[in-house]
């Protein structure tokens, strides 16, 4: 059996540097741009991209951020430290959308992706149709020393996976739990930590929330109850700061709902996508 998902490479400049970005695409209809979590890659969307209820209405596109999955770092990477920033992440999402000719996509992201959709809604409402934030909050305070994620005295893949393993709900199917963790084990050295520079520090978007106009860019936030990184209360506080935003706390799910247990996410997600598919 061959899946309908097709992978290709996109050549474009990001922050003035040439990049070769891998993306996967399937489906037809309203463009739906999918953003993976920190330290992982676009495989997290594998179930959604094989769900005919989604792909019959949406042109789904999941790209691997530079440094992640099959998107290599830019030339000269060895001379510096990878650190994701709000400006780089927003610019990347907009550049990929533009390069692929997407007309005001619905943008759905998880964790760091759920964070950056808030920035897109706040400052680029003309470029997006609506946003869905999975495990989305405007800020997460550090609760462990991220230095261990990139340290010669730990095995990087194992420690990154072990750190996030508890963020998966105890009820998640074993196969999807361990595939989700495998993606983390495959991350490049320092990449997860570099993403967390944005997530746990630089990318504090709380000051921007009040300027989001949900009449121009609807916002839906869906968060699994077992997430102790982006906690349910963090999502609810974020939604409360955005007039008109919708927030749902999902039982039996953790930090990676689309990857750890898509069947449990689906009943919450499909009604949101159905509404967003009908937007002009």
């Amino acid at each position: 059996m061959i899946e309908p998902v097709i992978g290709r490479y996109l050549r474009l400049d990001l922050e003035t540097r040439p990049h070769r970005v891998y993306f996967e695409e399937t489906g037809q209809g309203v463009p739906l741009l999918l953003l993976h979590t920190a330290g992982s890659d676009g495989r997290q969307w594998r179930h959604l991209m094989n769900d005919a209820a989604v792909t019959s209405r949406f042109r789904c596109i999941a790209f691997d951020m530079p440094w992640h999955g099959k998107s290599s770092p830019p030339e000269g990477w060895q001379g510096g430290e990878y650190r994701l920033t709000t400006a780089a992440y927003t610019g990347m999402a907009l550049a990929v959308s533009s390069a692929l000719g997407l007309d005001r996509p619905v943008v759905m992201g998880c964790s760091i992706g759920g964070r950056i959709v808030l920035d897109l809604a706040a400052d680029h409402a003309d470029a997006v149709r609506a946003v869905v934030g999975l495990q989305s909050s405007a800020f997460v305070a550090p609760y462990y020393d991220t230095e261990w994620l990139h340290h010669p005295h730990t095995q990087g893949g194992e420690v990154c996976a072990a750190v996030v393993s508890g963020l998966i709900a105890p009820t998640a199917p074993d196969a999807d739990r361990w595939e989700t963790l495998w993606h983390y084990m495959q991350g490049g050295p320092g990449v997860f930590r570099g993403d967390l520079h944005f997530y746990k520090g630089e990318g504090d978007l709380r000051p921007k929330l009040a300027r989001i106009d949900t009449a121009r860019c609807p916002v839906a936030l869906l968060t699994g109850e077992y997430d102790y990184s982006c906690r349910p209360e963090d999502t609810l506080a974020t939604a409360a700061a955005i007039p008109g935003a919708e927030a749902v706390i999902m039982p039996g799910l953790g930090h990676f709902p689309m990857s750890e247990d898509y069947a449990a996410l689906r009943p919450h997600l499909l009604p949101v996508l159905e509404r967003f598919a009908a937007l002009p």
């Binding site: 609760y143 462990y144 750190v163 393993s165 508890g166 105890p170 077992y226 102790y228 990184s229 349910p232």
Partner: peptide, 16 residues
């Protein structure tokens, strides 16, 4: 068993 959300993992306890 089962543990309540937010108390179900060693790092969740660290977060708490």
């Amino acid at each position: 068993s089962p543990p309540p959300p937010g108390w179900h993992d060693l790092m969740a306890l660290m977060r708490q």
